[in-house]
């Protein structure tokens, strides 16, 4: 692994400074119990010490809704739980919350375009690991019923050959032990979001753009969506998790342990209109008791 050149700059990965950089980053990201997992993820990231140091990690003070960096080093107790201006103006928010890991800067743009547009599918591992880091940083305490990717329209999928988010999610699922289920399909071919102008235009074009294709079992509020246990590693891990969950719910009652949360994954949260449209579709099918959280690499 470490013999490979740095994914970002092509430099040498193994170096003396790298360990220190990994340790420092793990401390910024991890709560104590998650430290080993985070350390392992960062260590296997395939970035050299310099690139790790330059990783634009979001700060401590974020919008509690969309996860945007609100500036400032330490959260003051009073202003801690704040929404940003954009989120405060949204009514009927279908998303329970969004979290990202990195600020979308030039580095992010470059990496994402290499993955998405140039088609370097080897980058999927890097992005999956970044998502897993974000997961451990923010969502480590939430039990998710399943994870789903934001889908591409069939035409776009055929043109590109792969769905970058799907690749990321399958990697994420393996790393955090959450079942990945395709829940949605895109029914309308919207122009590339980056080509559309304005927040309202984006929201308009997203309305009703998604359709439910998930398994029927997801609709009922049974936690039992892992139909055929066996086969791959992930499924087995999902199975053990479920078993523990059942024991847990026997003691603690369904309210606390029942996993009625769904994880929605995308590569970037810009205005949130895509993720909101997806969440609406999911909640329309699964029921409003289900909370839909979203996780993105860039915010």
């Amino acid at each position: 692994m470490l013999r490979e050149p740095c994914v970002s700059c092509g430099g040498r990965v193994a170096s003396r400074e790298r360990e220190a950089a990994v340790r420092r980053l793990s401390l910024t990201i991890a709560r104590s119990a998650r430290y080993p997992a985070v350390y392992r993820l960062l260590d296997g990231l395939g970035l050299c010490a310099d690139c790790l140091r330059l990783l634009p990690i979001l700060g401590e003070r974020i919008c509690i809704q969309c996860g945007r960096d609100m500036g400032g080093r330490t959260p003051s107790l009073l202003s801690d739980r704040q929404k940003c201006g954009d989120c405060a103006s949204v009514r009927d928010e279908p998303l329970a919350g969004n979290r990202g890991l990195l600020v979308y800067n030039e580095w992010g743009k470059d990496m994402l375009s290499r993955f998405k547009y140039r088609g370097d599918e080897r980058m999927a591992g890097l992005f999956a690991a970044l998502l897993a880091l974000a997961f451990y940083r923010y969502y480590g305490s939430i039990r998710f019923r399943c994870a789903a990717a934001v889908p591409l329209h069939d035409n776009r999928l055929r043109e590109r050959g792969f769905n970058q988010v799907e690749l990321m999610v399958s990697g994420l699922g393996k790393r955090i032990g959450v079942e990945v289920v395709p829940l949605l399909a895109r029914t309308r071919h919207t122009p590339k979001l980056s080509r559309q102008g304005g927040r309202t235009a984006r929201q308009e074009s997203m309305r009703g753009a998604f359709e439910w294709v998930g398994p029927v079992s997801c609709r009922k509020r049974e936690p039992d969506i892992v139909g055929d246990g066996g086969g791959s590693d992930v499924r087995e891990r999902g199975g053990t998790l479920l078993w523990w969950r059942r024991i847990g719910s026997a003691f603690l009652g369904r309210r606390l342990m029942a996993p009625d949360a769904i994880l929605l994954v995308d590569d970037i949260y810009t205005t949130g209109s895509t993720l909101r449209a997806c969440a609406e579709t999911i909640r329309g099918q699964v029921g409003h008791g289900c909370r839909v959280y979203s996780l993105t690499v860039f915010r």
Partner: peptide, 26 residues
Amino acid sequence: IALTLCHTCGQGCAYCTTCLDMGRSK
């Protein structure tokens, strides 16, 4: 040369990582 699950052709597919910068050769 990396194997890929290609949605363009839906068949067994692969792409070249050596000349990827020039566009994907699949």
